[in-house]
Design a protein around this nucleic acid. Structure first.
Lengths: 192, 192
DNA sequence: GTCTATATATAGATAGAC
DNA sequence: GTCTATCTATATATAGAC
């Protein structure tokens, strides 16, 4: 029954690698120029592939946006799950901030796209992948089900920093981490 | 020497009205779907015009983006000029915050685009129109020429709120104003 | 799994009639 | 000032050879 494992797995590995390269390139270009301004052709060109080759791995352009966002969405969702099981808003806030800061420092370049690209706001990515839901959940974890206007604005301020990370390229990972941690905590704590 | 004033001015007025309608529609669609995803055709359709008619008023699509952003850029630039002539960081911060809050409340729907659309980040809109320069100037006014990392992050947090205004549609102008004012001041003051 | 070639649609932009 | 008609470029996506 078993087909030649080595051959199959080699091909499969090759395919997986190519797919991942496409995804990395797509993510970088999406972040740099925006989803709409990035064509399949550009992605293919950067990798020395053809459009058709790219389409073998992704049936539609929008699938690439989904695929680039999914890992981040899942990670933040997991983070919120952890926070949800903790007692006390203060502790939950600290856990969420620490996790988000880790994520932002680790994905300085890519984190922008997910939260600010118009394409991510259309296409029901919000509802399907839960980007908007995540924000709602996080807000509820920090300030309860009925946050005040000021609490909502504080929450937005703290987590909208992600959209401006490119302005902070000159900071080292360590500097960025500390500045983010300090500032986000201060903003969120002061409102609770 | 004078040409028939009434005829000419009537036409001119008509043209100016149409131009303004185009601009309003463009600004709305840019804000809703993003610049790249908005076609001249869509703008024309909404107004019952044709693409050619639109092109009579704007030689290129990018000109519409410029035109939609210019008033806001000028207004904020003027605000910063005022702030620059004031003594004391505290006073400058308060003046800038008050002015920006006014602007945001007045342009709840449109303010998003200017600060977050990928198209505004490309096309050198930043350098030419000074969107990026405005941020730099504002930062210097609040925290001097050599702000710390934490001050820069605070500044970003305070003014990145603009990009998430759509999440606060349910707030009245008054509620929004107060929440913005309070939160932004708190974020910026605590860092000085 | 990647290619060439192509189908199809629509974008931005222009020419010229009215 | 607005129209019809059209140009040119490029987009997403597919079919089929290798």
């Amino acid at each position: 029954m078993r087909t030649p494992v080595k051959g199959r797995s080699t091909r499969a590995v090759q395919a997986e690698q190519t797919r991942q390269q496409i995804l990395d390139t797509a993510q970088r270009l999406f972040a740099e120029q925006g989803y709409d301004a990035t064509s399949i052709q550009m992605i293919a060109d950067e990798l020395g592939l053809t459009k058709a080759a790219v389409y073998y791995h992704f049936h539609a352009k929008i699938d690439m946006l989904h695929a680039t966002m999914t890992p981040g969405v899942l990670r933040i969702a997991g983070l919120l799950d952890e926070a949800a099981s903790m007692r006390g808003r203060r502790a939950r806030i600290e856990h969420v901030v620490a996790g988000v800061v880790d994520f932002l420092v680790e994905h300085r370049h890519y984190a922008v796209m997910a939260s600010s690209d118009p394409a991510a706001k259309r296409n029901k990515l919000d509802k399907e992948d839960g980007t908007a839901d995540l924000r709602q959940r996080g807000l509820a974890l920090c300030f309860g089900e009925h946050p005040t206007a000021a609490e909502r604005v504080s929450y937005i301020a703290a987590f909208s920093i992600a959209e401006s990370l490119p302005e902070l390229v000159d900071l080292s990972d360590g500097e960025l981490r500390e500045a983010l941690q300090t500032t986000m905590l201060r903003i969120l704590r002061a409102s609770s």
